[in-house]
Design a binder for these strands. Structure first.
Lengths: 220, 220
DNA sequence: ATATATTTTTAGGTTAGCCTAAATTTTTTA
DNA sequence: TAAAAAATTTAGGCTAACCTAAAAATATAT
């Protein structure tokens, strides 16, 4: 049978909160992420468990079953492909696409997704650097560093963000920190861990620890 | 406030059934078109009337208010633009896009529609020849002829279809009758009104009255 | 014009997804 | 380890959008 919009959202969120290690997700965490109350989450968990989409034992938190994982990854694939479409084809900024993709990701047509994927040239990453699962449901998380792990003197490539909030993305835009930018750490302030960095061999600017914590980078 | 998916569908269907003259639409007609029961329609009509989207007097049928008309036309605009996208950009056939567009038409973002429209080059017609309302909500129905009104010897341009059923559209594909095709009526059978026509000055074929009734054409 | 048929509405019910308040279980702390 | 705190579930309700069955209004036919 078909899963509802709401069910798909739960699965997607469980996937995200569960992390790469497939850890148990708590009822309260889900209530927070879905902007509902814990009691509502419990209702939905019972339903998802009945459908075989999650492993659920009362009071023990949940994890996705294999079939739940499949559904979640399909939704993530659609979300990220639509984000590429919105940015690459329609000219949206990377800070504007999340809410729209949140709707588009639930449009149910396998062939639509595959044609969209082909139209976009089978992209591997979305506009925020997140990897796009392939048609078979394989999702490989690249192992990027977090900017806070970069030492003074190192040159790294900006590969993605952990925070997708429009305000954060707009801040990066204003700083010239875009995907693919070369970031060279010139100095790290001992007191507040803010850093002085050089972007693409040009402008030097300061980034706070808060910003560093949300930047994914790669050594070259 | 926002209108629901279901409300938008009712408004769109009322618009369609109401026709160019804005005639009253009956409860039963709506039940038929929405695949629900008359009692369910009555519920929804009361709701739409409360929201000021339709004129509704019990037992009298309904018409759209100005604000209901606006909503309906926005939905139609989105539906038709997405159909253009699906056919022109993703390579779907004109017989495959209706159901998908039926979902996409309810994605709520003004800026998305306008960017999509620009991306598509501000098309005036969808893949079935239906006119696309402009951003201001102006929808001008071109006054095409129905194929049954064409006389022997006349040459007309194929401009649209009345029936959007996949089976009908596939039949036209097999016959080589596409939008823009030149159709010359060579003979009309007195008995069953079937016609012998020549397509684009080439192949001659027979079309039944049933087909003729669903073809929109224009004298050149 | 009255009886019959048709259409529409009302009444009362269902399900999905949410809610609050109260009860229960688990976790933490002293 | 017992009491307090936190997390979770249960119980009972709500709304949107549907349903069936029955009642009421309108239209049709004799």
């Amino acid at each position: 049978m078909q899963n509802s919009f709401t069910e798909e959202n739960y699965l997607k969120i469980i996937h995200a909160l569960s992390g790469r290690d497939g850890a148990e997700v708590s009822t309260n965490a889900l209530a927070e992420s879905t902007s509902t109350r814990a009691a509502s989450v419990t209702d939905m968990l019972r339903k998802l468990a009945d459908k075989g989409l999650i492993h659920y034992k009362k009071y023990q938190g949940v994890t996705l079953t294999e079939s739940g994982e499949k559904v979640a990854i399909k939704v993530i694939r659609k979300h990220r492909l639509w984000e590429v479409f919105l940015v690459e084809k329609l000219g949206f900024g990377w800070d504007e696409v999340h809410d729209i993709a949140e709707e588009l990701e639930h449009i149910p047509s396998e062939v639509l997704v595959e044609k969209l994927d082909a139209f976009l040239g089978h992209p591997k990453f979305d506009p925020h650097g997140d990897p796009i699962p392939d048609a078979k449901g394989n999702l490989t998380e690249p192992d990027y560093l977090i900017m806070t792990d970069v030492q003074v003197g190192e040159k790294v490539l900006m590969m993605g963000v952990l925070d997708h909030a429009p305000s954060f993305l707009q801040h990066l835009d204003r700083s010239g920190i875009t995907l693919g930018a070369v970031i060279e750490v010139q100095e790290i302030n001992e007191y507040d861990k803010s850093a002085s960095v050089r972007i693409n061999g040009g402008q030097t600017l300061f980034i706070s620890l808060e910003v560093s914590k949300n930047l994914l980078v790669q050594r070259r």
